Simulated scan of single mutants.
Amino acid sequence: MKQIDLDYFDKLLKDTLQDLSQRGLESLDEMTDNREVHADPADRATMETDRSFMLRLRDRERKLIPKIQEALGRIQSGNFGMCEDCGEDISIERLKARPVTTLCIKCKSIREEEESLRGE
C-alpha cells in the first residue's frame, strides 16, 4: 500500500476515534443533565425509547473503538490492508467502506458462508 493511502487511513481512523470519544462524552452529559419528568405515559415511553436507542448506538461505537485502535496499530506495524487469512491486499474500496477490516472480501464471504452453515 502506498504511503499516501496509509496517511489517509491513519487520519480517517484518528478522526473517527476522536469523534466517537466526543459523542460519548456528549451523550453522558446529556443523559446526566436531562432530568425531564413527563406526566404523560406516551411521552415517557418515547423518551425511554429514544434513550434506549441512543445507548445501543453508543454501545456499538464503544465496541468499535478497540477495533480502530487495532487498525492504527496495524498501520504502525506495516500490516494494515493485508488479509489475515490469505495474506493478499485488501482493496482500497473495501478499506474505505470498513477501515477496521482484517479480511479481504473473498475471505469474509467464505467466513460468512461457514457461519451460515453452522447456524451462527
Rank of each mutant, 00 (worst) to 15 (best):
R23W: 08
S109M: 12
I92S: 03
E84Y: 01
G81T: 03
K67S: 07
F53C: 05
R58W: 00
L28T: 12
A71E: 07
H38F: 11
L57W: 00
T49L: 14
R62I: 05
T102I: 08
R56D: 14
S91A: 13
A39F: 10
D89K: 09
L57A: 08
S27C: 07
T49F: 09
E84N: 06
E84L: 08
E84V: 13
Q69I: 14
G87Q: 10
R44Q: 15
I105R: 08
Q76Y: 06
D43P: 00
D33C: 04
M47H: 15
D15K: 04
G78W: 11
R60E: 14
D43H: 07
P99C: 04
R51K: 07
T49D: 15
D89Y: 03
E93L: 06
T102D: 05
M54N: 11
C83R: 04
S91N: 02
D85I: 07
A42Q: 13
V100L: 03
K108T: 01
T16F: 00
M54I: 07
R74G: 02
V100M: 12
F80E: 11
A45S: 15
G87D: 12
V100P: 00
L13D: 08
R23F: 04
T16V: 01
M31E: 15
E30G: 10
R23Y: 06
A42S: 13
M31Q: 14
R111K: 14
